[in-house]
Amino acid sequence: MTIDITPNSALLVIDVQKGFDDAAFWGPRNNPAAEENIAALMDAWQATGRPVVLVRHASVRPGSVLAPEHPGYAFKDFVEERRHESLLVTKTVNSAFYGTPDLADWLKGNDIGQVVVVGIQTNMCVETTARMAGNLGYEVLVPLDATHTFDLTGPDGLSLTADRLATATAVNLQGGGFARVVTTAELLA
């Protein structure tokens, strides 16, 4: 299956921050290849002159490993090494469209209609950003293997593994018409 990547398709790299390496804080994760896939996509986007947008979560929750004063706020080294002239969006909520500077304004100002969303966490900020991008009329591609998340417990002790949450995200995004779920290899081809 061929995927048409527009010449100005924007790669949105969501919250790839050191704080997500704190297993004691987050618990078990899935997809250990996520970082390698994100790096490969960043390299491909930069090699072809396509825009890369780095999104960073500035948590306002007390004790968060993603708070600006915490070392975990920093981007992971492989992202920082590839930062170059990427737009940096800082947010305090799940959607990159509620950050500073305004992502939608920047995309519109650069006549960008297609976005590829990668990063952490699959079922949180990646899914929320992808849903909102779809609602705003962008063509959205989500290479699920360039994301990862963590096991999560919800109401009444109901718990889902990271893999099950990622599967639910894929179904929500593609089944709900928000995005097309793809692989890193498909995008790199």
Rank of each mutant, 00 (worst) to 15 (best):
R29G: 15
V142H: 01
P101T: 01
D102C: 10
V60H: 14
V142W: 00
R83L: 12
A47E: 14
L144R: 10
N8Q: 14
F150G: 04
A23T: 12
F25G: 02
A34C: 08
I3V: 15
N123C: 09
E85S: 14
Y98I: 11
G119Q: 01
D21Q: 12
T2A: 13
Y98T: 11
A162I: 05
Q17T: 11
K76I: 13
A10K: 03
G175N: 08
D145W: 06
A185L: 12
P155C: 12
T129M: 03
I38W: 00
A133P: 06
S64H: 01
H148A: 10
T2N: 12
P28S: 14
E69K: 05
V55Y: 02
I112R: 00
N123D: 15
R56A: 13
L144T: 08
G157P: 05
P62Q: 14
D22I: 07
G119T: 01
T129D: 00
F150Q: 04
E69I: 11
N8C: 12
V65K: 10
R164T: 15
A34G: 05
G113F: 03
V55W: 03
D4V: 13
M42E: 12
Y138K: 05
G176Q: 09
C125G: 01
T2L: 11
F97K: 01
E69F: 06
E80P: 02
L136D: 07
N123A: 12
G175A: 08
A47D: 14
G63V: 00
Q114A: 06
F78K: 08
A185F: 09
E80V: 06
M124C: 13
N30S: 12
Q174I: 09
Q46V: 13
A185M: 11
L11W: 02
P7F: 03
M1Q: 11
K91E: 00
G49H: 07
D22R: 04
F20V: 11
M42K: 06
D145G: 06
Y73H: 14
M124D: 13
P71H: 04
V115E: 07
L136M: 11
R131N: 04
S159W: 07
V182A: 03
K91V: 02
E69Q: 13
K18M: 15
F150R: 01
P62E: 15
